[in-house]
Amino acid sequence: MQSDRKSSFRTALAPALPWPQPAEAFLAMLGGAAGIGACALMVWGMHEYGSLPLFLMAPLGASAVLVFAVPNSPLAQPWSAILGNTLSAVCGVVAVGLLPTETAPVLAVALAFAAMMLGRALHPPGGAVALLIGLSPNLLTEVGAVMVVVNTAVMTSVLVASGLVFHRYSGRKYPFRTSLSQSGPPPMRRLGLTEDNLSSVLSKFHQSTNLGAVDLARLVAAVEAELIQPPFEGVSCADAVSPDDTTVLPETDFHTLVGKLEQSGKPVVAVVGTDGRLAGLVDQRDLLHQLTGTTQDVPCPPAGRLARDIMRAPVTSFDGSLPLGDALHVMVRDNLDHVPVSQDGTFLGFLTRSLLLEALVWPVADRKVA
């Protein structure tokens, strides 16, 4: 028991982050230097040629860490960074104006927390901005309260603008995507998860400030691809379906249709023309509807009805070239049991859940080799 406690204690104090990739560390270092360099250049330009007495602030270094090291974090986004720091500067100025030097820093930080959260602009360096102003009442005397706020807004904006330019060429996405419909994983690679579903999960585990719904969707899609795609790598729907000889022609009569369904043991039969193209589907429900809907009192077989009169178009169908992994996602998402598969217009057969399970246990490529 003592050993377990020591192990838990060591684990709790161990680094929470994995070892960084050298390229990631280099990009973060280069981006931080570029961002602070741009701010310093802006200060120099204003001193030499402008009229605004801008100056660098220590919290900009913390903002640079977020913008250039973790650009996908909700805390690092332009809205959070610019508005968070600016609101915090306002809170710092208000606190210094209301309270004596000894207690102003406390109120400054407290107000900054509230303002950033209400403004949906939580940005950790904002707390440092408020504390810096609360600890430096002389700063307000030297440059003025308005200029302190303006300087914070301008300097943070320059830093964020640097991040926008830098990440355009770094391979990182900044700002991160905010719409699943516009830039989330392709629909076939998502098992019906909406942005509301993902946001709810993040809120449940108190992770809304650490990760955005769109980035969680990307992670879920990557996990799905990692678990599902490898067994189906290079395998299409045409490779998985079994040749289906339980088809009927559009001219097939009602009694023959019933016999075909009984013979196949399947709930659905394909209506295929003489050219091999899928014309429609007939399932058990369609036949029952014909039986019970012909007369009001005594049901009787509608002997005069042909397959073309009863069939309906398939809700979903797959092309034979569709990757089997994508077909799995659609069938699970839409709760489908049988989906017709055609290649160049020719009906090949049905892709069923049992065939997909078989492919997971014994990949199609392995069966072909065997």
Results as ranks from 00 to 15, higher is better:
Val93Met: 06
Val96Ser: 12
Leu99Glu: 02
Thr103Val: 13
Ala104Arg: 07
Ala104Lys: 09
Val106Thr: 12
Leu107Phe: 05
Ala108Ile: 04
Ala108Gly: 04
Ala110Gly: 15
Leu111Ile: 03
Leu111Arg: 05
Ala114His: 15
Ala114Asp: 13
Ala115Val: 15
Leu118Cys: 14
Leu118Pro: 06
Pro125Glu: 00
Gly127His: 04
Val129Thr: 15
Leu132Asp: 06
Leu132Ala: 12
Ile133Cys: 06
Ile133Phe: 05
Ser136Glu: 08
Asn138His: 08
Leu140Ile: 05
Thr141Leu: 12
Gly144Trp: 05
Val146Asn: 07
Val149Asn: 08
Asn151Ser: 06
Asn151Val: 01
Thr152Phe: 02
Thr152His: 03
Ala153Trp: 07
Ala153Met: 15
Val154Tyr: 05
Thr156Val: 11
Val158Leu: 04
Leu159Cys: 03
Ser162Ala: 14
Gly163His: 02
Gly163Glu: 00
Phe166Glu: 01
His167Thr: 05
Arg168Met: 04
Arg168Glu: 03
Tyr169Thr: 03
Gly171Arg: 00
Arg172His: 10
Arg172Val: 00
Lys173Met: 08
Pro175Val: 02
Leu180Ser: 01
Ser181Leu: 09
Gln182Gly: 01
Gln182Thr: 07
Ser183Ala: 15
Gly184Arg: 03
Pro187Leu: 12
Arg189Trp: 11
Leu191Asp: 00
Gly192Cys: 13
Leu193Met: 08
Leu193Gly: 00
Thr194His: 02
Thr194Leu: 02
Asn197His: 15
Asn197Ala: 08
Ser200Trp: 10
Ser200Asp: 11
Val201Gly: 07
Lys204Ile: 05
Phe205Asp: 14
Gln207Trp: 14
Asn210Gly: 08
Leu211Gly: 09
Gly212Gln: 10
Ala217Glu: 03
Arg218Val: 08
Leu219Cys: 08
Val223Ser: 10
Ile228His: 01
Ile228Lys: 01
Pro230Phe: 00
Pro230Gly: 00
Pro231Thr: 11
Glu233Thr: 10
Val235Tyr: 06
Ser236Met: 11
Ala238Ile: 03
Ala238Leu: 09
